[in-house]
Design a protein around this nucleic acid. Structure first.
Length: 591
DNA sequence: GCCGTTTTCGGCCCGACTGTTTTCAGTCG
């Protein structure tokens, strides 16, 4: 089994244990184990499993190590099979209903014999749920509404679309006279590729009008909670948003709390405790005594007006929001070894862009102008190759005509942006490229991408991509796994092996910044770049305005701990020309 | 189930809101 498949099993075990009413810390241990596995590389898992050293990974103890080793070696786990068989499958689905957790589901199952959502619907309709101890009319109504809207509510949302909803709301909050500060926190601020809900943190001494403004936004379909300092709403399309209003002196603590992932926050609080301090969204105060952090802060906490000051109080350098995933950032911040992350303003161009010659909407000139408007020095044109018939892929003749057109545009000096002539060349099912060497030799660079036979088994797909990498004309690999976020799963690829091959050949791997792709996944970048892999952040633009997708790509690059030096398209034009030139001449033409 | 410059046992982050309750459990983040 691959590490992701094993992680899924561990995650399922956590859900099953939760439904059984197991110790919540045991549940958390399985969840943590699943996350740790996801951040491991396949080859590292192989090595650790073979050497019997899984326990050396933090978060994996004796029991998890045994289970992971069994899954890795045999693809089965007796413990899991037995656990699964002992629990009604319909109960798991019921966890998706807002307001229903393991305890209530157990009560419904034990007292009313409810085993699935259909049974639950019927029991609610008959009024039997409201009669249970601990339940009531409102709970019953909420459950029915939750079942009805389950699909929309359960869905995650791509970062780009969530940001488009959140940004005007932040601006609106900041324009209110009662509001001193306002930020969107949560996974949106961490730049995660998908976002479950929005979190708005506001500093205000007068929360009433802010809650009123927020809950009466035009796009609000339902107000699910409304208190003095907190409100929750659902927008059209099911996106949920929480608003929290705090006094200004608490703002930095609340912003930090609601930005960090669960793991990051747990680690930060543990760090505070190890220094005799207690940390929460309320503030930071001495840990001794029975009182809550809130009460301690009221009696005199340590002040912090910014997150930077909070980190400093705990002996840490500032940790950018994108890194707050609990994946080693706190240790690095302690040692002063956090990288200086790449920024949007560092980009000088991008390499994977389409025009109306294939399936884009924009001429060479229009694309070049859009790049110039972003302050870019260069833009790489990489239209589809002929095998991508569905995308109007270019024949040899059309491609060479485009190359001539690009050369002539550059020579005319009419454009502020230098155009590079490339192609997004299909990696055919057997790993050959879609164009012969004689054609590819006339280009400035080649993006090699898989577009068909996405369902190949892992070994075949991995060998196919590596063969593509081994072609001396390949400059970079496009959207490595072919995933479409929330729409299509990634192809099965041994990413570690592909990374090794790319490093060995000096081939770049793209971080495709299209909001639906963000591929290669940020979780691979840190280790890959440390080992010498070079990244190119490419918008995969199909229209001039799509160049802005690099914003999403920068998020993922930062989550992958990438620095400017590790991203090819931060280099200025003369360096890029030299780099591409050296590659071209330094590589013997194939036999 | 994990973990340990206090530890191999006893902790494990902490608080708001809701709905159901006469003081709190469950859920959520």
């Amino acid at each position: 089994m691959t590490r992701n498949e094993i992680a899924d099993v561990l995650g399922e075990i956590a859900v099953l244990l939760e439904l059984q009413g197991e110790n919540p810390f045991k549940v958390r241990a399985y969840q943590a184990g699943a996350r740790v596995l996801e951040s491991l590389e396949e080859s590292e898992l192989d090595r650790l499993a073979k050497a019997g050293e899984l326990q050396s990974v933090k978060g994996i103890g004796e029991a998890l190590a045994k289970k992971i080793a069994e899954l890795h070696a045999t693809g089965r786990l007796d413990y899991y099979e037995k656990l699964k068989a002992s629990i009604e499958p319909g109960l798991i689905e019921m966890l998706q209903i807002p307001g229903l957790g393991p305890k209530k589901i157990r009560a419904l199952h034990e007292k009313l014999g409810i085993a699935d959502i259909a049974g639950l619907t019927a029991a609610c309709a008959a009024g039997r749920v409201a009669e249970l101890d601990g339940f009531g009319d409102k709970t019953q109504e909420k459950i029915l509404a939750g079942i009805k809207n389950r699909e929309a509510y359960g869905r995650r949302h791509r970062w780009w679309e969530a940001a488009a909803v959140a940004e005007p709301i932040v601006a609106g909050l900041r324009s209110l006279p009662q509001v001193r500060r306002a930020e969107a926190a949560g996974s949106l601020r961490r730049g995660l590729e998908t976002v479950g809900d929005l979190d708005f943190i506001v500093a205000s001494a007068e929360p009433g009008p802010v809650v009123a403004w927020f809950t009466s936004l035009a796009q609000v379909r339902e107000v699910t909670a409304r208190g003095d300092t907190k409100a929750s709403v659902r927008f059209e399309g099911g996106l949920q948003a929480d608003l929290r209003i705090v006094p200004e002196e608490q703002f930095a603590f609340a912003l930090h709390h609601f930005t960090g992932s669960k793991d990051h926050n747990v680690q930060m609080r543990q760090r505070a405790l190890s220094r005799g301090l207690s940390l929460s969204e309320w503030g930071l105060a001495a840990a001794e005594g029975e009182a809550s952090v809130k009460e301690k802060v009221a009696g005199g906490g340590l002040p912090a007006g910014t997150e930077r000051e909070i980190f400093a109080l705990l002996g840490l350098h500032f940790i950018p929001p994108e890194l707050r995933e609990g994946l080693g950032e706190i240790e690095a911040a302690e040692r002063g070894e956090l990288p200086r992350l790449v920024e949007l303003g560092d980009l000088r161009g991008a390499f994977h862009n389409h025009t109306s010659a294939s399936d884009g909407h924009g001429s060479l000139e229009e694309m070049a102008e859009a790049a110039a408007a972003l302050g870019w020095e260069y833009l790489g044109i990489a239209d589809h190759s002929k095998a991508s018939f569905q995308a109007n892929g270019l024949s040899e003749e059309r491609l060479l005509a485009q190359v001539a057109q690009i050369r002539s545009l550059n020579a005319s000096r009419r454009l502020k942006t230098h155009l590079f002539a490339g192609v997004e060349c299909d990696v055919l099912a057997d790993g050959r490229l879609d164009f012969e060497d004689g054609i590819l030799a006339q280009l400035d660079y080649v993006v090699a991408s898989v577009h068909n036979a996405l369902g190949q088994d892992e070994a075949t797909m991995t060998a196919r991509i590596i063969r593509g990498i081994e072609n001396p004309r390949t400059t970079m690999v496009g959207h490595l796994t072919g995933r479409l976020l929330l729409r299509r799963e990634a192809s099965r690829v041994d990413v570690g092996k592909v990374i090794d091959a790319a490093i060995a050949r000096g081939v770049v791997i793209e971080l495709n910044a299209h909001p639906q792709r963000l591929d290669m996944d940020w979780r691979h970048w840190r280790k890959a770049a440390e080992r010498g892999l070079l990244c190119s952040i490419n918008p995969d633009a199909h229209a001039p305005s799509d160049l802005e997708y690099v914003r999403a790509g920068i998020n993922s690059a930062r989550k992958g701990w990438l620095t400017r030096g590790q991203v090819l398209n931060t280099r200025p034009l003369p360096e890029i020309k030299a780099w591409l030139g050296a590659r071209g001449s330094g590589r013997a033409s194939p036999a």
